[in-house]
């Protein structure tokens, strides 16, 4: 049976892991390779790297980081951030990334989804969507939730699927950072509207939130950052707990 996936997300800048990471036995918490390896050992099913490198000139460090991760890691990983062309994506594919995630570049130019799907296959293209509930309903936001668009979240996700997205990574900005649980209501709506895998993101605070999202919605994966980085949730325990609820996991 296909397992539900648990995905730690790492922010990287200039080829280094940023944001507090509080791992025991880690000599260098800023080294994405060491961190990725630790997560793979713990039983993470996949990893997502979000590249927040600001300048285009430093993108070379990202490529080197992706290669270093691919050399060591024996589970799949996605890289997102700053990808706006087929050439950007190709450099990452050739460096060993299994999937790339695009966000604002796809909103600005939806044809990018189609171009990437045609060049590399739909399985390579994750469309990340940041959403926030407004007076006009759930709208797509850019720049980490700071910039509202007029795009209705559900319509945009359907369009992304029809253009060739192979997976949706949906982050609820209302839930992100609150540790109050995933946005199950919206995730359920999204899952019933499309036929590609969905990754839930934003709001994980405790194990019960993962149980909730996997029992109340048809999401395929759940992503979190700080609860894993700070050791608040440990992946083997999380998976054992999910299993007691009959949720298929890889142990």
């Amino acid at each position: 049976m296909l397992s539900k996936r648990i995905i730690p997300c790492l922010d990287v800048k200039d080829g280094r892991t940023v944001k507090g990471v509080n791992f025991v036995d880690l000599k260098d918490a800023g080294d994405p390779v060491q961190l990725a390896w630790q997560y793979a050992q713990q039983g993470a099913d996949e990893l997502v790297f979000l590249d927040i490198t600001a300048t285009h000139e430093k993108r070379g460090t990202t490529i080197e980081m992706v290669k270093a991760v691919a050399r060591q890691l024996n589970i799949p990983f996605t890289i997102g951030g700053g990808i706006s062309s087929v050439a950007d994506a190709e450099a990452l594919l050739n460096s060993g990334a299994d999937k790339i995630s695009i966000n604002s570049a796809a909103v600005r130019r939806p044809a990018l989804i189609q171009e990437l799907a045609e060049a590399f296959g739909v399985q390579f293209v994750v469309v990340a969507v940041d959403t926030k509930l407004t007076g006009q309903g759930n709208l797509v936001h850019l720049n980490g939730g700071r910039l509202a668009t007029e795009l209705d979240t559900l319509s945009w996700i359907k369009e992304a699927e029809s253009l060739g997205a192979g997976e949706i990574l949906l982050t609820s900005m209302d839930h992100d950072g609150t540790k109050q649980g995933f946005d199950c209501r919206l995730l359920d709506q999204v899952c019933s509207s499309i036929n590609i895998p969905v990754i839930a993101s934003g709001g994980a605070g405790k194990t019960a939130h993962f149980t909730e999202v996997f029992t109340q919605t048809a999401v395929d994966a759940a992503l979190a950052a700080s609860v894993f980085h700070f050791g608040e949730i440990n992946i083997p325990d999380l998976k054992k707990e999910l299993k007691t609820y009959g949720i298929p996991v890889r142990l």
């Binding site: 049976m1 296909l2 397992s3 099913d45 399985q123 036929n195 590609i196 895998p197 395929d220 994966a221």
Partner: peptide, 15 residues
Amino acid sequence: DKQQNIKIPHMGWNN
């Protein structure tokens, strides 16, 4: 066949 009530692509860890 998506009529089988499955998502496509088949993505992830399977037995």
